[in-house]
Write a protein that binds this DNA or RNA. Sequence first.
DNA 1: TTTATTTAAATGCATCTGCATATAGAAAAT
DNA 2: ATTTTCTATATGCAGATGCATTTAAATAAA
Lengths: 149, 149
Amino acid sequence: MTENPSVAVVAAWAALLRAERRVVSAVEADLKAADLLSPLEYDILLELGRAGAAGLRPMELEARLGLAQYRVSRLLDRLRKSGAARRRPCAEDGRGALVVVTDEGRRLLKSMWPTYAAAIVRHLGARLDSVEASELARLLGVVTREAKS
Amino acid sequence: MTENPSVAVVAAWAALLRAERRVVSAVEADLKAADLLSPLEYDILLELGRAGAAGLRPMELEARLGLAQYRVSRLLDRLRKSGAARRRPCAEDGRGALVVVTDEGRRLLKSMWPTYAAAIVRHLGARLDSVEASELARLLGVVTREAKS
DNA sequence: TTTATTTAAATGCATCTGCATATAGAAAAT
DNA sequence: ATTTTCTATATGCAGATGCATTTAAATAAA
């Protein structure tokens, strides 16, 4: 036990692994049952939607969602193939791409929300009161920000 | 927005996805860099270790870790192939298996801990004080237990 | 300029995951 | 006792992920 990495931290780590597996796979199952996109694909379309007609660079998506480069590349491939997104040439950088959500993508995004929201409530919301939910969001937010001083 | 699934719940959901991706992939990277097992494999060996010579049924692992049946089956395959676990016939149930950690598995488990603990501290612990860590563990624990009344 | 270095994105290949199903033994029904 | 149904685990196959590398363009160095 090297140097006791604080029992609480290890407990939080273990709980994070377990909670994520349980909740995410349950939500994913609900979405799949309704023949919809995965949460990750939803997130990408959401970002693209916010970016509007200007589109977004894959590297930007990579940074915002914290995904590996190749993963974004292939996720976009699939969204493109399914008709939810399309590419535009990038004026400032010839290597780059700009990815834009299509109308169909927007419709899909919108149509997913009721099911998605219901799944979130069912598998996460139903287990927390609103104070707990806020606190959980806050703590998880802290975790993804900069290291403590 | 179906019925406003409480902004806080959606925030917690989004934060859970992000935090898990960031922290888990960072820890996994540290383990991989040291040529060690994944956190999931560690967990399995840990459970097997606790079960001792009696071993554990795959279905029991499935339940404890919240994993899909086929996933456990293949994870055990690999642990077996790598020499960290082995099978014993199951007396009470001819269909079943009993999986036992090997000495090599125990050594591996033990040798992993310093690196694993350091990674947990680095990528999770360093961002939380001990009160926050406990609170996070508690809230994530609540999420994996039964639904609220 | 030409050449070297870096950066954005894509891709071949091996592994892993998820789904559906197979196998085989246990428990229940007849 | 047979047959049916159910349960525990494994597995073929398709799709996804991760790694390493490629391609092509941008930037820096010469």
